[in-house]
């Protein structure tokens, strides 16, 4: 039997879905706390029609986008700084590593105290979560650039700046992009935490609301939408950066 890979991958979820649907329909299982696929589709459809889902998605995406931009920019900046200068490395890295040792969610109470319950504290938390993988990924990549390629730059008369721009930067590009991708993943993780700590809209709010209202179906819809958004964002980064990674032997990126 010859089936395309993605069909094979769908077999188990589809089978589970059908079984569950039948179990609930024939009264074998209750389905209130574990709603069957048809109910999920119905809920998703209702939320979409009322425009509610869209406003939650927009709120969440806005937070992730802003938080990601701040965290990724800061992570890139500090990564470059510590990668370029041994002095900056000695000065900054110990403090950054110390902050990293604190589980990021432990900042939540302090952020709320300092920045209030509204957007700023949420963005700060997301940015903090994105910062570390980007910083660490870029710094490690810069430190492991092949010395031999740097020497090629020196032989052909590149300045320190020229080497950074024409050798180091392209060399670390794949690792930087990989770091950004894990940054996006953490961004979504922290947006959930941020929205669970108090929000009036957003997919995290939908989760919390579903819990308080006993609506397992809207919780599951929110979870599925989270998964889809994460996938889309990751795919977006992969698609945008594909041209600059064309040279890589192993560029067959798995979405």
């Amino acid at each position: 039997m010859k089936l395309p890979g993605w069909v094979v991958g769908l077999l188990i979820p589809a089978a589970l879905g059908v079984c569950w649907e039948l179990a609930v329909r024939y009264g074998v299982a209750p389905g209130r706390l574990m709603p069957p696929p048809s109910r999920l589709a119905q809920t998703a459809w209702t939320l979409t029609l009322s425009g509610e889902l869209w406003s939650h998605v927009a709120a969440t995406m806005w937070r992730v986008a802003i938080g990601f931009l701040i965290g990724a920019a800061a992570g890139t900046l500090f990564g470059m700084l510590c990668g370029a200068s041994a002095w900056a490395m000695r000065l900054l890295d110990p403090s950054i590593q110390a902050v990293r040792a604190v589980p990021s969610l432990a900042w939540v109470p302090l952020f709320i105290l300092w920045l209030g319950i509204f957007e700023t504290s949420k963005l700060a938390l997301i940015a903090l979560g994105v910062f570390f993988p980007v910083y660490l990924g870029l710094l490690t990549a810069i430190q492991s650039v092949d010395r031999k390629l740097i020497e090629v730059g020196r032989i052909f008369g590149l300045s320190r700046w020229g080497i950074a721009l024409r050798i180091t930067w392209p060399a670390v590009m794949p690792a930087w992009i990989a770091a950004l991708r894990s940054g996006v993943g953490l961004g979504f993780m922290f947006v959930v935490a941020a929205e669970l700590m108090g929000a009036s809209e957003g997919l995290g709010y939908l989760l919390l609301d579903g819990q308080q209202m006993g609506r397992a179906d809207s919780i599951l819809v929110a979870m599925i939408v989270f998964a889809l958004l994460g996938k889309v964002c990751d795919g977006f980064i992969v698609a945008v950066t594909r041209p600059v990674l064309r040279w890589q032997d192993t560029h067959r990126v798995q979405l």
Binding site: K148, L149, E151, I155, W247
Partner: peptide, 12 residues
């Protein structure tokens, strides 16, 4: 100018 033991081409 120089040629090294390895080609050391810039892969990108």
């Amino acid at each position: 100018s120089a040629v090294f033991q390895e080609p050391r081409l810039l892969p990108w």
